[in-house]
Simulated scan of single mutants.
Amino acid sequence: MQESGLKAVSEDAHHDALRVAIVVNSYPPRLGGLESHVFQLASELVKAGAHVLVVCLSTSASDTVEQGVRVVRLRMHFPIESIISFPALGTTRRLSRLLTEERISVVSTHTRFFPMSWVGVDAAVRSRIPIIHTEHGAGFVRVRSASIQFFARLVDLTLGRRALRRADRVLAVSAQSAQFVTRLSGVDSTVFPNALQLEFWPPTQKTQPPNGIAFLGRLVGGKGWETVIDVAVELITKRGFDDLVVHVLGDGPESELLRLYVQASGIASSVQIHGHAHVATIRSALERSVLVNPSELAEGFQVTLLEAVASGAQVVSYPVPSIAPLLADGGPMRQVEVDSFDALVECVADALRNPLPPMPRGTLESRWSWRVRSHEYLDIAQSVIAARAARNGRGARSV
Rank of each mutant, 00 (worst) to 15 (best):
Q2Y: 03
E3W: 00
K7H: 06
E11I: 10
H14Y: 13
L18W: 06
V23I: 15
P28Q: 05
P28L: 03
G32R: 05
E35T: 09
V38S: 08
Q40F: 07
V46G: 03
K47G: 13
G49A: 11
L57H: 01
L57S: 05
T59M: 07
G68L: 10
V69Y: 08
L74F: 01
R75Y: 02
F78V: 12
P79F: 10
F86C: 11
P87V: 01
T92G: 11
T92R: 14
T92K: 14
R94V: 04
L99Y: 07
T100I: 12
I104V: 15
S108I: 00
D122I: 06
A123K: 05
P130Y: 10
R142M: 06
A152N: 09
V155G: 01
V155R: 14
T158E: 08
A163K: 00
R169V: 10
L171M: 13
A175L: 12
S177P: 04
S177E: 06
Q179S: 13
G186A: 03
V187Y: 06
T190F: 08
F192A: 04
L198D: 08
F200T: 10
W201M: 04
P203V: 13
F215H: 04
R218I: 04
L219H: 11
V220L: 04
G221T: 07
G221R: 01
G224N: 10
V228Y: 07
I229W: 11
I229T: 11
I229Y: 11
V231L: 09
D242L: 14
D243W: 09
V248H: 07
S255K: 14
Y261R: 15
S265R: 08
Q272W: 06
Q272L: 12
G275Y: 06
T281G: 12
R288G: 06
V290C: 06
L297R: 14
L297Q: 12
A298H: 08
Q302E: 14
V303D: 05
L305V: 04
S311M: 08
G312I: 04
Q314D: 00
P319C: 06
P321T: 07
D329V: 02
E337S: 14
D339K: 13
D339E: 12
F341T: 09
D342A: 15
C347K: 11
N354E: 09
L356M: 10
P357I: 03
L364R: 07
R371S: 14
S374I: 09
Y377C: 08
Q382I: 00
G393R: 11
A396C: 01
